[in-house]
Amino acid sequence: MSDLLKIADKTYHSRLLVGTGKYRDFAETRAAIDASGAEIITVAIRRTNIGQTAGEPSLLDFLPPEEFTYLPNTAGCYSADDAVRTLRLARELLDGHKLVKLEVLGDPNTLYPNMIETIAAAKILVKDGFDVMVYCSDDPIIAKQLEEIGCCAVMPLASLIGSGMGILNPWNLQIIIENAKIPVLVDAGVGTASDAAIAMELGCQGVLMNTAIAAARNPVLMAGAMKKAVEAGREAYLAGRMPKKLYSASPSSPTTGLIS
């Protein structure tokens, strides 16, 4: 069955997108990403260490940009201006690459997004030719506005970044998914495999996660679990679950032919 994820006119087999932060070393990063099967990986843009980097390996040596679709992010940005600057630098760094993850944070403790700054940045970036996947609150009106601005995917949080609290408001996600004409991906808050499966069963087009894999006791094993969970959740969504009912007078085994 061909069931591809389509983002900004490009298709992907994997619906699991993963971050590359918080791993012990680059070798573990690579092993976990291989186990996850992810084709899209997020990276952060940061100042280069001057004078102490000669010969030191870089993330790009372990994860060649030819092999993956890089999704540069704006993590750590608290204003639209900083986010736009960061992604323009990313585009230069990655030879004109247009697909980006926009996130503008509002508070250093909760890492909750600032949607006013996010919307301002999204407008500028879309006008500037970027394909913007946007991290957002799970507010259906905001999600719709981001779609109308021209973002190529909306990525509401399941719960706060790095919290591992899972999907706290499936009803809002369901409204966002129902209203959206662009892919909806859950970004942030997934803690374990069942969370990812639930997101996919709700009808999300994909899931983006970092900490749930990197902070597992065995990240590579968890990466494999997440891959299966996303696939299982997607297939369950496509299959269409049986309706829930309080009880059933229809057992699975025949009611006739019983011995007496």
Binding site: G21, V43, A44, R47, T48, P72
Partner: peptide
């Protein structure tokens, strides 16, 4: 732009940001 590195002259007091890609989520 990288193609302009050769042709771009620096002047006293210039401020530069030099960035690369690192692990992130």
């Amino acid at each position: 732009p990288r193609s302009q590195f050769e042709h771009t002259r620096l002047a006293n007091g210039d401020k530069l940001e030099i960035v690369g890609a690192v692990g992130g989520g």
